[in-house]
Design a protein around this nucleic acid. Structure first.
Lengths: 230, 230
DNA sequence: TTCCCGCATGCTGCATGCAGCATACTTGAC
DNA sequence: GTCAAGTATGCTGCATGCAGCATGCGGGAA
């Protein structure tokens, strides 16, 4: 019995998560792109970036292949990799796809989410409101993204959550930059309050409606970035 | 003018599409997995597969990273890559996601598709019926997939098409195997006829409805594979 | 001056080398 | 016979070497 006991205790130990170098590099580069330290269109010089990250070109090249599949990087044979440039149409289509995913995941979440799921989302929502009051834009933005992700996750469909994460990463930067103006910000918060209420009532149609409106407004918030470019 | 003329002629030349080795390897391995020559759970021995494909381990490893992002392969650090095993729940969730994508892309297609788009889909549909009459199961299956892809593409949203392609690839094999029985086959064909009619009328709600029903039935067609396993 | 050809440089793409871990086998003790 | 420790083998993961292509620059001709 004593041995069983200790074996049980050991089974509770968190497994050592061994991260391979290429996965770590992919993670780091993802952050660099989303943070804008690697700007769209920038060439990725393997020797240079590899030296800066302190890794050889092999794991770096493997990481680049991952980012290509995620849609963050493009490769031109014999020329190399570059950070993907998103046109206005790309962003519009990505937001349309995100809208579809969020609306339908939201409906499912109203039907399937546990009480604990709902409570957790509600807590994120409250926190986000505080960040809005304090005008802590970065923290607000992160909580905002977390809420949307949590709603999709509450659908119970891991595939939808996976697609949502990938698409969200692609246009994360544009959305952060595009969300700067105060009146737009206030509008987004108002929509979030509606979302929280609909979700609390498990009112799937109301949630889908406001999620759709929220995403349409999100596109409007981002759109001017492109008109300003010209 | 003469030089302009010849320059114009040259501009018409199809560009030489240079395929990198790792992309070619990824494509080949994708086929091997979908065709079932690399079975789920099978370890991918880099030396062995590399030798069989006639490439060194480097481009092979890069291709594996691509397939991991596509969800066809899994990597365990220090142990290696293996063909991903899909549980019944994985397949159910993937089909649910595909259902959402197809229904919504179908609605958009009814609104946005050009007459040429519709004609092309209709032509595929007619061909597929011929294959069904002749009981050419493989050709039927390929046309079937092509029709669904064409409907999603006709939405005009390239992102939705991309997601659809990726998800479809993951469970392609299960769907092919699960579609074997005659009465199920007949039911699927009946649904396809409904789809073609709804699309011709640009009746978005009717199309979404039958697409949903088609996907639910598809899950039923696949489900028994898992019950048989136990 | 302008255009074009040729050359040099730098980078990518792939092959290979090498260390370290996982796994299977063997040997020895009980 | 069984179990455990030690050992050997094979594979992965990363680093490095090398050939070939892209690109920028200089020189020469028109």
């Amino acid at each position: 019995m004593d041995t069983d006991r200790s074996a049980d205790d050991l089974a509770v130990l968190p497994p050592i998560t061994r991260r391979t170098l290429h996965a770590e590099v992919a993670s780091r580069m993802r952050d660099l792109i989303i943070e804008g330290r690697l700007t769209p269109g920038a060439r990725i010089n393997e020797g240079l970036i590899g030296a800066q990250l302190g890794v050889s070109r092999t794991p770096l090249r493997e990481a680049i292949k991952t980012l290509v599949s995620e849609g963050l990087v493009e490769i031109v044979p014999a020329k190399g990799a570059m950070v993907r440039v998103f046109s206005e149409e790309d962003v519009a289509q990505t937001l349309e796809a995100l809208k579809i995913i969020e609306q339908n995941a939201g409906r499912l979440a109203c039907q399937r989410a546990s009480a604990a799921d709902l409570a957790r989302i509600q807590a994120l929502h409250e926190q986000m409101l505080v960040m809005y009051e304090n005008r802590q834009r970065l923290d607000y933005f992160k909580l905002n993204q977390a809420i949307h992700s949590a709603i999709v996750a509450a659908s119970g469909n891991a595939i939808l959550a996976e697609l949502h994460t990938t698409l969200q990463a692609r246009i994360k930067r544009a959305r952060f930059v595009g969300n700067g103006e105060p009146e737009k910000w206030a509008g987004a918060v108002a929509e979030h309050i509606e979302m929280a209420q609909a979700l609390a009532r498990r009112d799937d149609e109301a949630l889908a409606e406001v999620l759709g409106r929220h995403m349409d407004a999100s596109f409007a918030r981002v759109r001017y970035l492109f008109s300003a470019e010209r």
